[in-house]
Computed example of a mutant assay.
Amino acid sequence: MPYLVSKTSLPEVLMLEPKVFGDERGFFFESFNQRDFIGATGFDVDFVQDNHSRSEKGVLRGLHYQIRHPQGKLVRVVSGAVFDVAVDMRKTSANFGKWAGVELTAENKRMLWIPEGFAHGFLVLSDFADFLYKTTDYWYPEHERSICWNDPDIGIQWPLEDVPKLSVKDAAAGSFNLCEVFRN
């Protein structure tokens, strides 16, 4: 199996560790293979968009989700390190409002699968980080929603050294108890 798959504290949010082939010259691994992804996770999804962001240490992006055209995301870090978080936004889920967080680094090459119905965010732990992710739907800014990164009802334990650097949009994000959620 090309991926070692492990569940996070949210059963649908999966960590994938690819099989890496390395020697004195460097390394090689398949970062994505549709057939192997389906076999390893049981999720048959079509990715329609790839995104790449670079952020400096202390930048916190999120928590974002789209209320219509929800996006499943397969995320990874190609340089640096981040603490990556998913929050269950599905009102009928037993895990509604709960979160899972993992450290993704260029060195560990782990990927995180975040299905539709979850909010997503990350904090940069290294001097900078290049963050790549595939999405199952396009970005629709009119349907994007944001939840405050430090909402007490969610209680994410971010590994912060200082106050995070936020975008204007993320600084104005609403509270969990007032946000739109997925009803199914």
Rank of each mutant, 00 (worst) to 15 (best):
D88V: 02
F32R: 13
V102W: 06
D50C: 09
T136L: 12
S93R: 09
R25H: 08
N184V: 01
S167V: 02
F83Y: 15
Y133A: 03
F131P: 00
L4N: 08
I154A: 10
N51I: 03
F37E: 06
E17T: 10
V48E: 07
A129E: 11
R25F: 11
E180W: 01
A171N: 07
G26H: 11
E180F: 01
I114K: 02
A100P: 03
L74W: 03
N177C: 06
Y138W: 15
S55G: 07
I114F: 02
W158T: 03
G26S: 11
L60P: 06
G80P: 05
E161W: 13
T136N: 10
E17W: 07
E144Y: 15
K169G: 03
K7V: 01
D151T: 09
K73G: 03
L178W: 04
Y65E: 01
E56S: 15
T136D: 10
G72E: 07
F27C: 04
L104Q: 08
N184P: 00
V124F: 14
F128H: 13
P152S: 15
H120T: 01
Q71S: 10
F122C: 02
Q49E: 12
Y133L: 04
F96R: 00
S9A: 14
V45Q: 09
N177H: 10
F29W: 07
A173W: 04
V13I: 03
I38G: 11
Y138E: 12
K98H: 14
W158P: 00
D151H: 14
C148D: 14
F21L: 08
R76G: 03
E180K: 03
A129P: 07
F37G: 03
M89N: 01
Q157T: 04
V78Q: 09
R183Y: 00
P2F: 14
M1C: 01
M15T: 09
T136P: 05
G42D: 10
F118A: 02
A40S: 14
N177M: 04
H64I: 05
E161N: 13
N177P: 00
Q49G: 04
N184L: 03
T41S: 12
F21P: 01
D130Q: 11
K169N: 02
D36T: 14
L4T: 11
Y3T: 00
Q157D: 09
L10K: 07
R61K: 08
T105G: 02
R110T: 02
